[in-house]
C-alpha cells in the first residue's frame, strides 16, 4: 500500500504538467461530507496551476449530472483532455487521497501506467464495464 506523506503528495501535484479539471458535485442540503470534500479538493488544486475546480449541484445542474453520470454526492470526476470515466465518491482522505492524487497524475500524463499485456486485453473490451472500488481512509 502506498504510504506517501502529505509533502510527497504536494510535490507530486506540483509536478503536473498538463491541465486537469476536478469536477465536483455537491448538494445544498443533507450532505455533511460535501464541505470537507470540497475543502480537500480546493487544497489539492492549490498545489498546481494546472488543476482547476468546477462545482455543480446534484439537484440543480441536471445537464452536468447526466454528462458525468453522477448519482451521489460528494463526487469528484477527474478530467484531463477527455473524461475517461474516473470518479471518487465521498471525502478523499487517507488512502483515498493518495488514490485521487494518483488518478490526477495519471490523467495529466495521459498514461495508465499499465503493462502492455494489460493494455492489449483492456483495449479489446467492446461493452460497458463499471468498476467500483470500496475503500476506507485507513
Amino acid at each position: 500500500m502506498d504510504s506517501r506523506t502529505p509533502d510527497e503528495l504536494e510535490a507530486t501535484l506540483a509536478g503536473i504538467d498538463a491541465p486537469v479539471t476536478l469536477v465536483f458535485f455537491t448538494q445544498t442540503f443533507g450532505c455533511d461530507s460535501c464541505l470537507p470534500a470540497r475543502q480537500i479538493v480546493d487544497r489539492i488544486a492549490s498545489f498546481s496551476d494546472q488543476i482547476t475546480v468546477e462545482e455543480y449541484n446534484l439537484v440543480l445542474d441536471k445537464d452536468q449530472v447526466e454528462t458525468y453520470g453522477v448519482q451521489r454526492v460528494p463526487a469528484i470526476a477527474v478530467v484531463g483532455q477527455a473524461d475517461v470515466g474516473i470518479r471518487f465518491y465521498g471525502v478523499p482522505e487517507g488512502h483515498e487521497l493518495v488514490s485521487l492524487v494518483k488518478a490526477i497524475t495519471l490523467v495529466a500524463a495521459g498514461d495508465s501506467g499499465l503493462s502492455d499485456e494489460s493494455r492489449a486485453l483492456i483495449g479489446s473490451v467492446d461493452q460497458p464495464i463499471d468498476i467500483q472500488v470500496f475503500a476506507t481512509p485507513t
Binding site: 453520470g69 474516473i86 460497458p128 468498476i131 467500483q132 472500488v133
Partner: peptide
C-alpha cells in the same frame, strides 16, 4: 483501466 478503454468507468467509493 478506465483510461485505456472508453467503455470502462472506475469509481472509488
Amino acid at each position: 483501466m478506465a483510461f485505456e478503454n472508453a467503455h470502462i468507468t472506475a469509481s472509488a467509493v
